[in-house]
């Protein structure tokens, strides 16, 4: 089980791989769309990679609720 710090680091790696945003920029308070400029197609890729990395399921209706990186970290922490 990964703790929140590990989840954030892992998620940041995925965001860097998929969207080319420096992992250091990916902090809990950042919005995927408004701050990191990640489009809906990239969000699908990020979700699939996060599911594999953390062993969670992120259904589409949940994905739509994950506005910030912190939202995603919390969701993964609760559901892994």
């Amino acid at each position: 089980m990964a703790d929140n710090t590990e989840i954030l680091a892992g998620l940041a790696e995925i965001v860097e791989e998929v969207a080319g945003i420096d992992a250091a920029e990916v902090s809990a308070d950042k919005s995927f769309v408004d701050d990191l400029d990640i489009d809906s197609l990239s969000m699908v890729e990020i979700a699939v990679q996060a599911e594999d990395k953390f062993g969670v399921k992120i259904p589409d209706d949940q994905l739509a609720e994950l506005k910030t990186v912190g939202d995603a970290v919390d969701y993964i922490a609760k559901n892994q």
């Binding site: 197609l41 990239s42 699908v44 890729e45 699939v48």
Partner: peptide
């Protein structure tokens, strides 16, 4: 399977 198909 489906999950691995790229949205692009």
């Amino acid at each position: 399977g489906l999950r691995k198909v790229s949205p692009l």
